[in-house]
C-alpha cells in the first residue's frame, strides 16, 4: 500500500480498488446481493486492510490514538474479532466546530479463511496502525505439483 510506491506497490493499490469495486457491487441493494454477513458500512472504526501471500496473512488496523493494550484482538476458526474503546476527552469549556473522529466502543470482525494458524500470530503497533501477522498452515499453502 501506500507509502513507497514502486510499480508493484501501485499494482497492489489497483488490486485494492478492483476488490473494493467488486465488493461494492456485491453489497448492492439488489435481491441477489451477497456481501459478507459481518461487513459494515464504509467509515467504520477501525478501518481494516488485509493482504495475503503464500505464507502469511497480514491485517492492518487503522487505530490511531489507542492504547494497544486495551485493544482486544482474538481469532477463532479463521474469524478475527477486534473490540475496544476509544476515549476522546471533550473539554466542556470549549466550543466545538467539528467532531468527526470516532469515539466510544467498537467491535469488528473479519473472516480470514480457515487456513490461518491461530497459534502463530504476532502483532505490533506503530504510528497508530496495528499490524497483525498470521501464518498460514502448511497444508493450505499452494503446492507445486510435479508432473513426471
Amino acid at each position: 500500500m501506500f507509502g513507497r510506491f514502486t510499480s508493484s506497490q501501485n499494482s497492489l493499490l489497483d488490486e485494492f480498488w478492483r476488490l473494493q469495486q467488486e465488493m461494492d457491487e456485491m453489497l448492492g441493494d439488489g435481491p441477489f446481493s451477497s456481501g459478507g454477513i459481518r461487513s459494515l458500512p464504509r467509515g467504520s472504526f477501525p478501518a481494516i486492510n488485509v493482504i495475503q501471500t503464500a505464507e502469511e496473512v497480514q491485517v492492518f488496523l487503522f487505530a490511531p490514538g489507542l492504547d494497544p493494550k486495551k485493544l482486544d484482538v482474538s481469532i477463532q476458526q479463521g474469524l478475527l474479532t477486534i473490540s475496544g474503546q476509544r476515549q476522546i476527552d471533550v473539554d466542556d469549556k470549549s466550543t466545538y466546530y467539528r467532531q468527526e473522529r470516532f469515539a466510544g466502543d467498537f467491535r469488528r470482525a473479519i473472516s480470514l479463511g480457515e487456513d490461518v494458524d491461530a497459534e502463530r500470530v504476532t502483532a505490533t503497533y506503530r504510528d497508530g496502525i496495528v499490524q497483525i501477522k498470521l501464518h498460514r498452515r502448511e497444508s493450505a499453502k499452494p503446492r507445486q505439483i510435479e508432473i513426471h
Binding site: 497492489l12 476488490l19 503464500a54 492492518f60
Partner: peptide, 19 residues
Amino acid sequence: VQFDLPEKAEALHADVRAA
C-alpha cells in the same frame, strides 16, 4: 502512510485505499 509489505502480496480486504 508508510507500510512494509511483503513482495507478491494480494489484497483480501481494503477499507483504506489511498496513501
